[in-house]
Design a protein around this nucleic acid. Structure first.
Lengths: 226, 226
DNA sequence: GAGTTACGCTACGGCTCGTAGCGGAATGGG
DNA sequence: CCCATTCCGCTACGAGCCGTAGCGTAACTC
């Protein structure tokens, strides 16, 4: 729906302005930063985008759908550069994901849209397809690399079993980072990423024992806020 | 603030009606189930509670604060019965927490209030003190029991180190359950709880290997939706 | 009884919502 | 070229909620 509700790329008559689309989505993100979710109004977005309010309603039926589309593209920035080991890959994705969540428009939009989705099944599906499910590629990539390195056993013959494991890992990583940064409201820095990765890789006993040193590092490419 | 903004339990003049307090909070939860967050209005709550709108504004300045108070009490229901092992305790808290999140008023309110809090520092603190931080008692209790049983090493001499570990475990458990049930929108059933606990206790290698049997059980008291 | 505080009720200006109707602009088909 | 079609910006509208103020009354303390 939304920007995708044009069956033919060109039917007849005047085409929709692609520039208006971009202006609207940019204005939505900017307004989200300044105002937050509850004070964000369609009128304000239209005004900032230099667009009539009616144009906005012609493309998005609700504020929540507009915001999903405005924010979804930000999540596609996530990458998983090969860190050389499973531990490095996990720490890398944790830090880059948390950097994304640190941006005001991202965290505000994500939480608000999830809240709306608890009473709106269509919106829930829209979020999953536009944002959440697409990020499982990161887990799949990291897992495949680790298996190539011999750090993890190869896939089970049962595809359902494999999918379940991927979903589990995804929920644990994404959930922990979101909870740490947005609920507990504490920084996801290099130290936290290290301890979390130790817990994920080796289990509860490893982080409980008083021997989990955080190695000193000089280079820092993911921009953690240590 | 809110219901706690009475310095003296009885100052002078007519006291605030405790019945009105209960009626308002009950009406808030009920309206939240029927309408969701965005369509929930102060007028509607006042009408359902049989209370004047002005009475409502005398006690809560904003919708978000009202909802925090209305929902906070639900989280105090969480208990941690001794399951006899660390694994049983973790699975127990995962299942009871997910049962709480399955209630419409809980999930709607929690996500909406967290969304609002991303642009409201005071609200963020209110949520932490009224809801989040109080539940760390569950981690502390489970950890102490496991240490008594010898399943985990005793506390480090460094108190800061201990607090960091407790916070980490809390974020991982709560975050994973919230993400699984509210974002991925898939059931937290007995099977998921089992695999998650395996991952938490033994690390990634344990769930990736094709040997993590789910023991059959007859009794089922937490209502997993398998 | 006097003083104080909470209550229900009504009314208000201000804002946003989502829609309708208009004239005009941009495209494709005959 | 001209027409049909579709989009655009603009204005206006009834509706609903917001948060506050003012009033008379009820409940409780000293």
């Amino acid at each position: 729906m939304a920007a995708a509700d044009r069956p033919c790329p060109q039917r007849r008559g005047r085409p929709r302005s692609a520039a208006a689309d971009r202006a609207i989505l940019d204005a939505t993100r900017a307004a989200l930063v300044d105002l937050g979710w509850s004070r964000l109004t369609m009128s304000e977005v239209a005004h900032r985008a230099g667009v009539a309010k009616t144009t906005l309603y012609r493309r998005w039926a609700a504020k929540s759908e507009l915001v999903v589309d405005a924010v979804a593209v930000l999540f596609d920035e996530l990458e998983l550069p090969d860190g050389g080991s499973l531990r490095a890959d996990v720490e890398g994705v944790v830090l880059s994901f948390s950097a994304l969540l640190r941006r005001p428009e991202t965290k505000t939009a994500l939480m608000a849209v999830l809240a709306e989705s608890t009473t709106d099944e269509a919106l829930r599906q829209r979020i999953r397809s536009a944002i959440v499910d697409r990020q499982k590629r990161l887990v799949l990539a990291g897992r495949a690399r680790a298996q190539q390195r011999g750090e993890l056993p190869p896939d089970s013959s049962d595809d359902g079993e494999t999918a379940r494991v991927v979903d589990l890992i995804f929920d644990v990583i994404a959930g922990a980072v979101v909870h740490r940064s947005l609920v507990s409201d504490r920084p996801v820095d290099r130290s936290w990423a290290h301890h979390f990765t130790t817990l994920l890789l080796e289990g509860l006993g490893a982080v409980s024992s008083p021997s989990d040193p955080l190695p000193e590092r000089a280079a820092q490419k993911t921009g953690g806020s240590v």
